[in-house]
Amino acid sequence: MRAALARRSHSSVTPEAPTHEQLLPFVAAASRVADHSSLRPWRLIEIRGEGRAKLGKALGKADGSKKPSDKPFRASLLIAVVASRQKSKVPEWEQDATAAGVAHLLSLLLDEAGWGVFWRTGDLTRSKPVRKAHGLKKNEELLGWLYVGGIHAKYRDARGKRPVDPTKYLSSI
């Protein structure tokens, strides 16, 4: 409860980021989301270093720009969230929900561990150049990227948004 109520998006992060080895237990924990038929219809792509330049070129091309986008350089670590749909009785929307659940739980876990995280999406996630840069298969859709880094000192003790009034969002029949 404490982690959920304290969570916030950090749209600007410092260059520090968890290593690949540090990231593995977070991914293992995030894999515990609800998953009908245990399909694991998701995968994550770790993007660092030159991978960010490759993504920048793809985003620039997809946007019709002659120059690469600098957006991937807003964090040292980007984690692409991919819905990797499986042939199953489980509908695609439910498989996509599982992939989104992994992304949200992963962002919550990283936030609780002291990392700044924000989730970027947009129309370019469905573009051919961006799909190609991520090596997506026909059964896969990019849901966006988690940008991960250190938290700026002025935000370390800042609280996230106030919780909603639950009576406005919880009803019964």
Rank of each mutant, 00 (worst) to 15 (best):
R120L: 10
K71S: 12
W119N: 12
L110F: 03
D96I: 15
F73G: 13
G60A: 07
L142A: 12
T121Q: 06
Y155G: 02
L124Y: 10
D123C: 00
G64P: 00
E140M: 01
A53C: 07
A99R: 08
P166R: 03
L59D: 07
L109F: 09
A158H: 07
D111S: 14
R48L: 05
T98K: 05
E112T: 01
L136G: 12
V81G: 10
L106S: 01
A113T: 04
K66I: 08
L142F: 12
K67P: 06
W119S: 11
A113M: 08
G101F: 06
K57V: 11
R131Q: 08
A100K: 11
D157Y: 09
L106N: 03
R52L: 03
D123R: 00
R162M: 01
I47G: 02
A153T: 10
S107C: 11
K137P: 00
L105T: 12
K87L: 11
L105W: 03
R52Q: 12
D165G: 06
E141F: 04
K66R: 10
S65V: 03
T98H: 05
R156F: 10
L109W: 10
V90I: 10
V90N: 06
L108N: 01
L143I: 09
G64H: 08
L39S: 09
D157W: 09
K61R: 07
G56S: 06
W119Y: 15
P41W: 04
A158N: 07
R159N: 09
G116Q: 07
L44C: 08
L55K: 12
L59N: 03
E50V: 07
I151E: 04
L124I: 07
G49L: 00
R85M: 14
L77N: 02
E140P: 04
D63Y: 12
L124K: 13
E50A: 15
A62H: 02
G160A: 13
A103I: 11
S38A: 14
P72R: 06
K87A: 13
L142K: 07
D96Q: 14
S84V: 06
F73N: 13
L55W: 13
K132F: 07
G51Y: 12
A53M: 08
G101Q: 05
S37F: 02
A113Q: 06
E141K: 14
L108E: 00
E140Y: 02
E92G: 10
K137E: 15
A153L: 11
E112Y: 00
V81W: 06
R48P: 03
R131E: 01
R40T: 09
D35E: 01
S65L: 14
T125V: 13
H134L: 15
K67L: 12
T125A: 13
G144N: 01
T125I: 07
V117Q: 08
D165F: 05
W115C: 06
V82S: 14
I47N: 02
S38P: 00
K57T: 12
A100S: 15
P129T: 12
I45H: 05
E141Q: 13
R120G: 04
A153N: 09
H152W: 10
G122T: 09
A113N: 05
K138W: 08
S107P: 02
I151L: 01
